[in-house]
Nucleic acid binder design. Structure first.
Lengths: 338, 338
DNA sequence: TATCGGAATGTTACCGCGATCAGTTGTGCC
DNA sequence: GGCACAACTGATCGCGGTAACATTCCGATA
């Protein structure tokens, strides 16, 4: 246990166990034929010394790095940890390992993070969204490794993609709202020009409304702060400005929940007087006094499918690289299902 | 842009720009003297080829890896992403980079993840908790790199530690509750024998109650599912079983919020008839109809302090390695402040 | 008994880059 | 004009492993 600052190498184990470095390497990787006797000797020595193999050297020599770069905009969004869960679950059965990079929704940071990750020569990349800087796309293209763009399928992927159509999600929600007879519809969302998926939902949403000659009567955007509190505040503001609103579409469940709590407190009839809907289908909603209407974004499944594609491609197995999942609307208690 | 499967090396850039590999290396790392002219030549060539340096080789050659292993139990807990935020913020100003590993609260998985991470020879380790398997402790010890154990300070660290005393947090909350005159106190928490911090809070909590001759009148534990919904359910169950309860202490804010929503719905007077308190001070609470009493766990600050210690030690700057932060109680609207 | 084959082990040659040291210029100064 | 020195550039070696090939040793087979 007493050791210099320099960390141990195969040579140390080799000397301690009296066999060649190569044999030690074989034992530690379970590769090739090694007699049970020497295997034991080596393992004992390695354990005794507290040897931890150096993957840096191993990766360089073998030209194989079992890492999968996962690049997402945020960890605090609830959505992405779930996607990650799906990814990890699948990769756990392989020799691959996810490594996460966070972009904070900034294209330049994405570019930086991507560069950084590619410099470790991962076996694959899973990256959120279809919108990237030109340089990022070029890097992905040139990397020569499998790339899966996730979350969104409204656009052209560099390689593979797994997600839902957010335009369609917006359209379907709009259709359901109109069908339920609501007419004075407001939209509350995040002030994030760079959140392309929220934008696409909004576009799909207004598109369908427009076809029925309906226009959003009010809208408001926030940034930062507690989403629940913001939902509450914005809802209050909208009601004040546009008292005749009969439906509010929130760009995510969290602000939707805030709005719901506010309206219930005010004694407003939901969904009679005002209907509500959010987006994502987060688990959190199950604990609310009333179920918020929402649309499932298939988060976990996106993760598993993406990881499966990477795992297959790494092993040179071809696999369908364009997966569009179908989000399902859930009416809950805040949107009349007619 | 047309390239074989083999990815580019310094040699490619060197040939394309007509200088030695060494010079290319210097340009790309901004080290040593290089004339402006050759610098430009090299940078142009590198960009044109789409060259991305190979950190694997670089790290091996330089014996330096600018990664900091961050090992935490979970990403879905809300708490850890915030700690991570603190870490990232500090490391962003250095050349270090965090790499996250998740243990799911399982000691064996922690051991595995730690081994995995150490095999990449990071410059430092930030790891949640003070409880590890013997093998894990040995690895940390033997690694010869700075180690900071975070979140908790009730115990002996391998090296440095940053956190709060959860025993004390439990004690303080108990004292505040008693002082407010509550007598029939229930405890609701997670069924996680491996969540040592929750356990310590509970121990501190009961310890102070015991000193006043008070015992927890009821308790319940959950696992899995939506925390908000579970808080609701468990609160209902407790009220049914022990209708005379006058205070409920929740092991986290999320279930506390569920309980709060339930009680308000039932028209129960909070904090008159029943007082409530949670733990963590999550941002979410700000959007609730009433502020839940809670105790701030100093999450972000834990992250920044830990990262600062690593950053300092990596540069051979000594720095105080035992930081105990003081969590502050916030009474909110659900605990009488007397 | 000579030969062969496979299991067990060792040897050699890199992997792509950076540390180190060794040139090769150009410049200012006496 | 010669020298010292800085500015710049290149050659060599090795980081700690692994792939590929070479070797040894043994029993089985003809």
């Amino acid at each position: 246990m007493t050791q210099k600052n320099r960390s141990l190498t195969l040579r140390d184990v080799s000397e301690a166990s009296g066999v060649s470095e190569m044999t030690v390497s074989r034992v530690l990787r379970n590769r090739g034929d090694v007699s049970a006797a020497t295997r034991d000797k080596v393992l004992t020595a390695a354990k005794e010394l507290g040897y931890v193999p150096n993957k840096i050297a191993g990766a360089l020599a073998s030209q194989r790095v079992n890492l999968v770069a996962v690049i997402i905009p945020s960890l605090s969004n609830m959505v992405f940890p779930e996607v990650l869960g799906g990814i990890s679950q699948v990769l756990e059965d392989t020799e691959l390992q996810p490594v996460v990079g966070v972009t904070d929704y900034l294209p330049e940071k994405e570019e930086k993070v991507l560069y950084e990750m590619l410099s470790w020569r991962p076996s694959g990349v899973i990256i959120a969204g279809l919108e990237h800087t030109e340089a990022s796309r070029a890097m992905l293209q040139a990397s020569g490794i499998p790339v899966v763009e996730i979350m969104d399928t409204d656009g052209d992927p560099v390689d593979a993609m797994v997600g839902i159509s957010h335009r369609r999600a917006g359209r379907e929600m709009a259709a359901a709202i109109l069908k339920a007879g609501y007419k004075k519809i407001a939209f509350l969302g995040t002030k994030m020009p760079l959140d392309h998926r929220a934008r696409k939902r909004f576009e799909g949403f207004t598109e369908v409304l427009a076809k029925s000659g309906v226009e959003v009567v009010d809208r408001e955007f926030y940034s930062g702060g507690s989403a629940l509190a913001k939902g509450r505040e914005m809802t209050e503001a909208v009601l004040e400005r546009s008292p005749d609103v009969d439906f509010i579409y929130y760009s995510n469940d969290m602000i939707g929940a805030g709005g719901l709590l506010y309206l219930l407190e005010k004694g407003i009839d939901v969904p009679g007087q005002i209907g509500l809907a959010g987006f994502n289908g987060v688990e959190l909603l199950q604990g609310l006094p009333r179920q918020l209407a929402t649309m499932d974004a298939c988060r976990r499944e996106i993760g598993t499918k993406a990881a499966e594609i990477i795992a297959a491609r790494v092993n040179d197995v071809e696999k369908d690289g364009q997966v569009t999942l179908a989000p399902t609307i859930s009416f809950g208690d805040t949107l009349r299902d007619v």
